[in-house]
Nucleic acid binder design. Sequence first.
DNA 1: TATTGTTATACTCTATAACTATA
DNA 2: TATAGTTATAGAGTATAACAATA
Lengths: 178, 178
Amino acid sequence: MGFMTSSVPESRGGGATATSVEADLGWALGVVFRRYAKAAAAALDDVPGGPRGYQVLATTNAEGPKRQLDLAAQLGVDRTVMTYLLDDLEKTGLVLRQPDPVDRRARLIVPTDQGKETLCDLERRLSAAERDVLGSLDEGERLIFRMLLQRVAVKADAVDPIQNACELADETIDITET
Amino acid sequence: MGFMTSSVPESRGGGATATSVEADLGWALGVVFRRYAKAAAAALDDVPGGPRGYQVLATTNAEGPKRQLDLAAQLGVDRTVMTYLLDDLEKTGLVLRQPDPVDRRARLIVPTDQGKETLCDLERRLSAAERDVLGSLDEGERLIFRMLLQRVAVKADAVDPIQNACELADETIDITET
DNA sequence: TATTGTTATACTCTATAACTATA
DNA sequence: TATAGTTATAGAGTATAACAATA
């Protein structure tokens, strides 16, 4: 179990060697994740906030206007971080802060036309990054891998949703109490 | 492509929705990685340096005494960070800094008996974490998933070994030049 | 009184530079 | 001169606390 940083699996020889069958999940997971993260970060380099900035664009574009706090909760970032992030995105002209008609404290985040165009371009770049990372698998294997990974992820996310199931709850009828 | 942070895939409805077939590799990868990282970090909580500390133990135990600089390169951490890390590990009695007989500048890092025992315990905990994360797959699927992941990882690591293939080169005969 | 968003501050992690002791 | 390791310092990224406006 090389955990998640070291390069090269290394031939195991010495003392408390890892179990043989379960070879290095952590290592593999770490390598693949970082590889994708790096490729993605490179693809998103010119977006303010990088991956975070992209997420704001993608979410607001796909799901419509969002309040800052909801956005922060959904993306798993602190609300103070969201402020800085949106400052940069707004400065670059990718999103707008609009007053919420039903709550004058809140601001609704919407992507600008330029933001939508940028997003479209970023999606393409990310697709390329994905294909690049999974390049060692053929079509069929890639499909299987994705399917299994997706299943593991959905389960993992259900067990441990970043931290904000509560925030999401108000989008559905509240069945948790009474 | 929900990238790698947001919780819950969310139903896609709006504008520039992600491509339908390649559903959210980044998101899934991120979720699974963080889930494992979190579980592993919890399992390694009482080890100085957490995952890093574990890696030092695992590497020096499996591959024998290592000089600090080599260890740092192999684990992908800065040499200054390695100093702090080893300070803590040595203070806790898990490793020793021994003088290198062939170079009085260098120190060889070796695990103590206590370090080896601790390592043994940690390996068990990490195995549990692994089984936990992959819990949604049955035996056969787990095997396939591991195999595919491993292949992707090995390729990814070859393309982009953390950054220090050069440092590793002196352990083999240098065939890269001449 | 509680909540949205902002600002200022502090903390953590990591990297950079300067230093020593050896080579 | 270059290298192994240490130390001090500075930088990014993130979280905490106090604040203004509104509910």
